[in-house]
Design a protein around this nucleic acid. Structure first.
Lengths: 352, 352
DNA sequence: TTGTATGCGTTATCAT
DNA sequence: ATGATAACGCATACAA
């Protein structure tokens, strides 16, 4: 199925130009010298036949595809989009083509991607996985070193990886809210069982104790990592009648949904309830009020991952390296009445 | 640079199993029959060497990569993401791998993508281009038929393509607003010069005349296809002091920005000003109020494009086909006070 | 049922 | 400076 059309090969060019294929090949890759007239004849032949080198054959011979694959869990998530853009910039600059695969968190798709590397389909692989299972790691290990994992991998797994201390990020959020004078800080988390959700919960709790705030399980809600999830969580929280004066959300989608729902139900943000999200997606900058968030530096992680992979492709027997980036707090209107919105001159947030 | 590591080939397997490479190959592709014991020996050898077929060599021999490439202008735009997801589903179901390229509207990148097809890198190509230039079309034509263009291509270009009548969509928006009793309908358009912007402007104008509404150039603003653009446009409009009771925005990002800015400046949506956007991105469903929009059926277009391409790969000498989808009006809260929000039970939009 | 040999389109190593 | 030829790893037509 799906054979390509007949197309000129290097043999055709050589024939038409009346030279050997060796000569043509040398000219294509401009290695060695060619006499001006043969050069000219060959170029004319290439033009006439509109010859273009077959990349598959070239890859087979050179044992290199000049292609890198990036695997992300969900292309609909702006965080991974930012990551992809950073990776693309970095790899493209080095002359590699980047192909992007979105697995929709389907482990089978992740496997397919790793197999593409085994099959020499691509030179290297950057994979961002939410659930780093043992079988996944075994697969990764089996595939050699031309891989870089974005996410948490156990120290025992000798593979390049770049992670982020998201628990630390959660601590930052809680600290910030506490500093603003909030005492009862709710936490809307994603589905338990995923690595990110666990880490954020840990961070939330240790943030509370660092700030000497009491823990109240009624303030912790688990939901989906979506705006709809955030809306629902606020309804649950409000209907519980448990008072709260701030919410930390495990990602920005939740936070956005939560903020909208609070406003719909007549709760003012940030005056009545302050909100901090996590991921720092672009949308944070344009809502009313703008949304404070913990940046997990998705773009930065992508950039670093690309760099690690590119270095490894150059020098395959480097020792495995592991990089961890530190989250940053981005304060905006949803957690600070004193803040003028950063992007729109003459914003609408008057001091308290 | 970047050679792959040494890995078992079919020769190694044959040697270890004590059979010929022909036999191994036949077993791999389970064609013909093999005696149980040889089958077993070969499988054992493959296991032991953890053999995996080299996809590049296979592609060269079979003249097929089983890979399709999708080229979109901007991966940060939810519309293209929806399109990509649809294409991915369709191609994956047929056993093709999809690799996604985002050109950031860089014509050079589009060229690179088309060249990948020429180089037999991929079996087929779906490309969604904003500015369909002559040189682009020449390139496309030169590459054979294994391509499907999403967007407007002149009838003279014999290539599969799927388009959408976005002018018609704009008419729908204006008609709807007029039916709601609005008389002075502003239009916030994207940068002039792009094909989509031109079409939407045409549609807006013919919508006005169809509804016997006067045209007022003061009500037409040109800006970026972004939320920030929408915000700025509203400021311009409001400061002009030209009255208006509705806004049609050339895409949803603009519409979202416009709605937020109106609300910030104390204008109620939809009571004071109604809004209709275009593209129907997911975000429309979760704002307050929800945003009416014209769906351009991005997913549908992706699905159809994939189908066209797959059919062509099966049957290369089909005549070129061209499909045009018809936009749909999606009424939500931003243009209808009577509407209860569709996604949240007990929404907050009381009848007028 | 299995083995042998040739070619897919390039590149690279030899001679010339 | 150029030509001939052997790989790259796999699939297949043909022979055994």
């Amino acid at each position: 199925m799906a054979k390509g059309p007949a197309v000129a090969t290097i043999v055709d060019v050589a024939e038409r130009a009346g030279v050997s294929i060796g000569t043509v090949s040398r000219i294509i890759n401009n290695v060695g010298n060619a006499r001006p007239d043969t050069l000219h004849r060959v170029q004319a032949a290439m033009e006439a036949l509109s010859y273009v080198p077959n990349h598959v054959a070239r890859s087979l011979k050179r044992q290199t595809t000049e292609q890198i694959e990036l695997v992300i869990p969900d292309i609909a998530n702006p965080v991974y989009v930012a990551m992809a853009q950073a990776v693309q910039r970095a790899t493209q600059a080095e002359g590699y083509r980047l192909s992007l695969i979105s697995t929709e968190s389907n482990p089978l798709e992740e496997l397919r991607a790793v197999r593409a590397l085994k099959q020499q389909h691509v030179d290297g692989l950057i994979i961002c996985s939410l659930r780093v299972t043992d079988s996944f790691l075994r697969e990764v290990a089996s595939v050699g070193r031309r891989i870089c994992v974005i996410g948490q991998v156990p120290a025992s797994c000798p593979v390049d990886n770049v992670g982020v201390d998201s628990a630390r990020g959660a601590v930052l959020a809680v600290q910030h809210l506490a500093e603003q004078g909030h005492q009862r800080i709710a936490f809307i988390n994603g589905p338990s069982g995923t690595v990110p959700a666990e880490a954020r919960q840990r961070g939330y709790l240790s943030g509370l104790s660092e700030c000497r705030l009491g823990r109240d399980d009624a303030l912790v809600i688990t939901t989906d990592f979506t705006m709809t999830g955030g809306r629902a969580a606020i309804d649950t929280l409000l209907d519980k009648q448990t008072p709260f004066d701030a919410v930390f959300c495990a990602n920005d989608s939740i936070a956005l949904g939560a903020m909208l729902r609070l406003q719909e139900r007549g709760v003012r943000v940030p005056q009545d309830v302050a909100i901090v999200g996590m991921d720092d997606i672009d949308l944070c900058k344009v809502t009313t009020p703008t949304l404070s968030s913990i940046s997990l530096l998705a773009g930065e992680r992508g950039r670093v991952a690309a760099q690690l992979l590119l270095e490894r492709l150059e020098t395959p027997d480097l020792a495995p390296r592991r990089v961890t980036v530190t989250p940053r707090l981005i304060v905006r209107g949803s957690s600070s009445s004193y803040l003028i919105r950063e992007d729109v001159p003459g914003g609408n947030h008057a001091p308290r």
